[in-house]
């Protein structure tokens, strides 16, 4: 454990660490910019995964293997994948409007953002340019995970307990904002379901499968009814119906 914990020698920056940093830092930055820039929400999420992976490696490099692994497993692995699932379920075609409601807002935001970034970066450069890291060995003296556990269960035990309030609030909030309760009178029993099924205007039989043509057998191609027309019932509602050319639709001489 200790061998692994002291990946970075305290006090100095080793060559390997420097090389890794200079390779991954631009990637992390690119991921962050891509997250904001990408039009498609799924692409945005994937860019964010890139940034988080790079950050995870940084943590490991800085002798925090536990936090690095947690970053990769929990954030990148679990949370972002959950996020992607939700995006896919909700539908990813929700396009954002690109109309600026405040004129010049984007330019101003970019300028101020760059200014702020430059300010913080130069400040930190001046403050930390020559500083050496101290206390890393003491912090990892009993191993990295043990060090974190010792802090969590002694000094920050109350803060640690209070995070449970956060989690419960989040769960309650998700239920309040997203859950639609069906009223009892809206629930249909068996008799009502059957009546609705055989009501005039409703076709009680199963839906036809998609059409099979010489040129296409996609699930998006509508099937043909006995009278030669196409039926929309054969295609799932969420799919755009495949357009068939006249040639596709023309009868292929089977009437002879």
């Amino acid at each position: 454990m200790t061998g692994q914990a002291v990946l970075a020698a305290a006090g100095g920056v080793t060559g390997g660490e420097q090389i890794t940093f200079w390779i991954l830092a631009p990637l992390a930055l690119m991921g962050a910019i891509g997250t904001v820039w990408a039009r498609n929400a799924v692409h945005s999420a994937l860019w964010l995964v890139l940034t988080m992976l790079c950050l995870g490696v940084f943590y490991v490099l800085q002798s925090g293997p536990f936090i690095g692994m947690v970053q990769i497993i929990v954030y990148t692995g679990a949370i972002m994948m959950l996020f992607l699932f939700v995006l896919m379920l909700v539908g990813r075609d929700a396009s954002d409007s690109l109309i600026e409601t405040l004129r010049g807002q984007r330019i101003a935001a970019i300028l101020l953002g760059l200014g702020f970034g430059a300010l913080v970066a130069t400040g930190l450069w001046r403050a930390l340019g020559q500083a050496d890291a101290v206390g890393l060995e003491q912090a990892n003296a009993n191993g990295n995970v043990q060090g974190i556990a010792a802090l969590l269960f002694t000094r920050y035990v109350f803060a640690f307990e209070i995070t449970s309030a956060l989690l419960i609030t989040a769960a309650v909030g998700a239920m309040v904002l997203a859950h639609v309760e069906r009223r009892r009178q809206d629930r249909m029993d068996q008799v009502a379901t059957m009546k609705a099924r055989f009501r005039p205007g409703n076709y009680p039989g199963p839906k036809p499968g998609p059409g099979v043509y010489a040129t296409s057998s996609s699930v998006a191609t509508p099937a043909r009814l006995p009278d030669g027309g196409l039926t929309e019932r054969s295609v799932p509602q969420i799919l755009p119906q495949r357009e068939l050319s006249e040639e596709d639709k023309a009868l292929k001489g089977t009437e002879k």
Binding site: Y156, A159, I162, T163, L166, T169, G173
Partner: peptide, 13 residues
Amino acid sequence: LTMFIALEAFSLP
């Protein structure tokens, strides 16, 4: 740190 967690705990609701 405790302050930050308390900040989140009262903001989220």
